[in-house]
């Protein structure tokens, strides 16, 4: 659980674009699973929102349900530019996190 909310941001050049690969550590409990031992329902705990900013400007935003797998991975393209990419994300329990990375394509 110590890793929860940590993010890994990676990118690589692909043709004219940058391909970003983001991993966020999160249990993504959908709220439909039962504990196999106790039979009790495991409460929902999943990311709901991820905003992607580049040099302070919003460039993409994700919304999701508990249907995204544990430790979610998001892959997407951005136009290449130099600066800082910032991720701002939150879960259904009101936890908020932020992660940044310098981008030098």
């Amino acid at each position: 659980m110590g890793l929860i909310g940590r993010a890994i941001i990676r990118y690589r050049r692909e043709g004219d674009y940058l391909l970003f690969n983001v991993v966020i550590f999160h249990p993504m409990e959908p709220g439909t699973r039962k504990d196999p031992v106790t039979g009790k329902k495991i409460p929902a705990h999943y990311l709901t929102k991820l905003e992607v900013k580049f040099n302070g400007k919003r460039v993409a935003s994700f919304r999701m349900s508990g249907g995204v797998s544990k430790n979610p991975v998001f892959t997407f393209y951005l136009k290449p530019q130099k600066g800082k990419i910032t991720l701002e994300y939150e879960d259904n329990k009101g936890n908020k996190w932020r992660a940044e990375k310098e981008v030098n394509p």
Binding site: D16, Y17, F54, K57, R58, V59, A60, S61, F62, R63, M64, S65, G67, V68, S69, P72, V73, F74, T75, F76, Y77, L78, K79
Partner: peptide
């Protein structure tokens, strides 16, 4: 499952997840 809102900074309509 997922919504990916794009912007003019997204050059190619593509998203991958699990």
């Amino acid at each position: 499952i997922l919504e990916f809102k794009v912007s003019p900074y997204i050059p190619k309509l593509y998203v991958k997840t699990r």
